[in-house]
């Protein structure tokens, strides 16, 4: 029987095997790295909320401290989202007719919590704790970015494991004096490398354990 494919077709078939492998590899590459693409991990994407609460307006415009609303951030794992009562300490008197605040008033009247959409949400198999970070000199800004400039809340970082580890391997890059944790405009000094190292020592940060799996997966 006559040969269907000429000898030169060997080349084409080898090339197509290679191409198929490349395609599979790149699909895998996309799938495995998809969480690193900002849009997929929602970095920098403002999340819509039942009330258009603006951190920019309340924090920068009026100088309200994070702890006025996120009262448990220094003492518990959970920073906490303020109850409607907190809004009403001011909004029982300010902009009492504004339609934009109607959901807040309704929530207070009917004693029904406002259902804020979560912006940061780690998988349930990861353990995270605010109080240790705050008490060891890690600023809100290091993890949440310029909250004071956000009209609507958005993520500033992916919050994936690689990101946590980048700091846990060497916290001296990001650590700051404790009294600067809530400062949204802190500027790292030129000698951060030396200052960071001495703060890590002063605050007795246990750098040797910080990359153990069991720290975050307990």
């Amino acid at each position: 029987m006559a040969q269907v494919f000429p000898r030169s077709a060997n080349w084409a078939s080898k090339a197509s095997i290679l191409a198929a492998l490349l395609i599979v590899a790149s699909i895998l590459g996309v799938v495995l790295n998809i969480n690193r693409i900002d849009y997929v991990s929602m970095v920098g994407v403002a999340i819509d909320q039942p009330v258009h609460f603006s951190h920019k307006h309340h924090v920068t415009g009026m100088g309200i401290d994070c702890r006025y609303c996120h009262t448990t951030v220094e003492v518990s794992a959970f920073a906490g989202v303020p109850p409607t009562e907190t809004c009403m300490t001011c909004h029982s008197q300010i902009w009492t007719e504004a339609p934009i605040l109607e959901p807040v008033r309704a929530s207070f009247r009917d004693n029904k919590a406002i259902e804020w959409n979560r912006v940061h949400d780690l998988p349930d198999f990861v353990y995270f704790n605010h109080s240790i970070h705050v008490s060891q000199g890690i600023g809100c800004q290091s993890c949440h970015g310029q909250v004071d400039q956000m009209p609507l809340m958005m993520k500033a970082h992916t919050l994936n494991m690689e990101w946590c580890l980048d700091c846990h391997r060497d916290p001296a890059q990001f650590i700051r004096p404790r009294d600067q944790v809530f400062n949204m405009n802190y500027e790292y000094p030129a000698n951060q490398e030396t200052l960071g190292k001495s703060l890590v020592a002063d605050y007795d940060v246990q750098t040797s354990q910080l990359t153990n799996c069991s720290i975050c997966h307990r």
Binding site: F78, N111, D124, F125
Partner: peptide, 21 residues
């Protein structure tokens, strides 16, 4: 299932109780 386990995180909504808390 692993990302969102059958447990409540603080302040998570509940479909079980009438007030949703």
């Amino acid at each position: 299932a692993m990302y969102n386990q059958e447990k409540y995180e603080p302040l998570e909504a509940s479909a079980f109780f009438d007030d949703g808390l």
